[in-house]
Design a protein around this nucleic acid. Structure first.
Lengths: 230, 230
DNA sequence: GTACGTCAATACGGTAGCGTATGGAAGAAT
DNA sequence: ATTCTTCCATACGCTACCGTATTGACGTAC
C-alpha cells in the first residue's frame, strides 16, 4: 500500500540524516541541527535517529565529513579538467557566483569555530583551497613568495564576495545582468598578474623535468587537490 | 552574594548587559547570549535582567544598536581625520589586522541572518562601509561605475581577510612579522588604481610580482600596522 | 512456521534556558 | 520614621531538546 509516498518509506540511511543535517545548517545555522526537528522533517521520530547515530555529535561529525568530501569533489569535477593555470584562476573567479547553499554552510561552520572538530574541518577545506590557488599562481611563474601574496588576495576576494552577497544582496548583481560579467572581467584583470613581457614562457615548465609529459603524476603536481566550492 | 568578578556591586545598567551580550557573541556566538549564563557572569541573577529588559530579544536589539554605533564610531574616529582619498584607502587597508573581537562579532551576526532584525543591522553597517569605500574611489576621480568595481573588490578583500585570519591562522602573518607589512604593501598596490586618473579599467603597470621589485605607489608607506586588541 | 536482525514508534527522565510572580534590601523623598 | 522607587534574589511553571529504554512491525534465514 502506497509504496511511494512522499519520502521513501523503506528505510533511512545515515547519509540521509547527514544530508538533512547539512541542509539544516544551510537554512538555520548549526544550532538548527536538532534531532527531533530533523526527525520531524524526515517524517520519522527520534527512535530512528538513535539507531543510526549514537548522539547528535556523531551526526555532526558525519555531516562534516560529507561536506568536506562534497566540497573537494565538486571542485575537482569542475576545475580539474582545465590545465592552463591562467584559465584555472579565471574559472575559479567565474565561479564566484556559485552555490548559495555551499557558502551558507561554509560560513555557518566557520563562525562556529568554538568546536575544535568543526574548526579542524574548516581548516582542512580552507587549506586545500588555498594550496590550489597557490599552485595556480606558482604555475604562472611567480615565486613562492609572490604566489602567496596573490593567492591570499584572490582567496580573500572569493570569501569576501560570499559575504557581500549575503550581507548586501542589493549590491550584488544577478548572474544574468551585464554588471555581473562586467565585474567578473574586472576581477580577472585585477587578480591575475600581467603577462610580464620579458618572461616569455606563459607556462614555465616545471623545474623538475620528470613528470612533464605525464599528465596526472600526483607527486609532482599537487594542483589537483581541491579548491573553492560549487 | 558571591561577587566573583563584579567590578561594582552598586548597580547594573542596561548598557552593561548589552556590552556583556556583545562579548558573549564574540566568544560563544549568538546562541551564547543566554540570560542566565550572562547573569552568572555578571554576578547577578535573572531577576536583575528582567528588570532592565523585557526579554532576551530586547537585549539582542540593544546589543545590536550598541554594536552598530561602536562600529561606525570606530571607523569615523580612525579614518575621518584623513582627507586624501588615497590615504584613506591605505589607512583602511592598514587596519585589516584590527580587532579580532570586532570581526568575530561581525561574522557571528552575519551568519545569523535568519533573524530579520540582525540581517537589517548587518546590512546597514555593510552599506555604510561600502559607501565609504565608494566615496573614496570616486574621490580618486573614478566614474561611479569604476568606483563600484574597485570598492567591491577592496571590501571583499577586507572581509575575506577576516575569514582567512580565522580559518587559517597559520596562513596569516603576525602583525610584527615583515610578511605582514609586505602583504599590506602588496594590497595597497593592487587595490588602488594607478595614478593616471583618466582611465578606470583595471589595467596596471605596477607590480608584476609583488612589492619588492619596483617602487610601489608614491604615497604608500605608513599605516601598515595595527594591533589585535583582544 | 520460528528465530533473528533491522529499523522505527512510544514513553520516560533529565537539563537548560525563557519568562513570571513575588518578595526584599537599600537609598531617596516626604 | 514611613513610604516610594530602584534594583535584585528566589521560586516557580513552561518548552525544547538530548539521550535511554522498551516495544513492535517487517523482512529474511532457517
Amino acid at each position: 500500500m502506497a509504496p511511494s509516498t512522499a519520502p521513501d518509506r523503506t528505510s533511512l540511511t545515515a547519509d540521509a540524516w547527514a544530508a538533512a543535517a547539512l541542509d539544516a545548517i544551510s537554512h538555520r545555522g548549526l544550532e538548527g541541527v536538532a534531532v527531533e526537528p530533523l526527525a520531524r522533517e524526515l517524517g520519522v521520530t527520534k527512535g530512528s535517529f538513535y539507531w543510526h547515530f549514537s548522539s547528535r555529535e556523531a551526526l555532526l561529525q558525519r555531516a562534516l565529513a560529507l561536506w568536506e568530501q562534497q566540497e573537494t569533489d565538486d571542485v575537482l569535477r569542475q576545475v580539474a579538467h582545465e590545465t592552463d593555470p591562467r584559465r584555472r584562476i579565471e574559472s575559479l573567479i567565474g565561479r564566484i557566483n556559485a552555490s548559495k547553499r555551499a557558502s551558507r554552510i561554509y560560513q555557518a561552520l566557520s563562525s562556529a569555530a568554538h568546536d575544535p572538530v568543526i574548526a579542524a574541518c574548516v581548516r582542512r577545506v580552507s587549506e586545500r583551497r588555498m594550496r590550489f590557488l597557490l599552485d595556480c599562481y606558482r604555475a604562472l611563474g611567480l615565486s613562492d613568495h609572490d604566489a602567496r601574496l596573490w593567492a591570499r588576495m584572490t582567496y580573500s576576494v572569493y570569501l569576501g564576495t560570499l559575504q557581500i552577497r549575503r550581507d548586501l544582496p542589493d549590491e550584488w548583481p544577478a548572474a544574468d545582468e551585464p554588471a555581473f560579467a562586467d565585474y567578473v572581467q574586472f576581477l580577472m584583470g585585477a587578480l591575475i598578474p600581467p603577462e610580464s613581457a620579458d618572461d616569455g614562457a606563459p607556462e614555465r615548465d616545471n623545474h623538475n623535468g620528470g613528470p612533464g609529459a605525464e599528465e596526472p603524476a600526483p607527486t609532482a603536481n599537487r594542483a589537483a587537490r581541491a579548491a573553492p566550492d560549487s
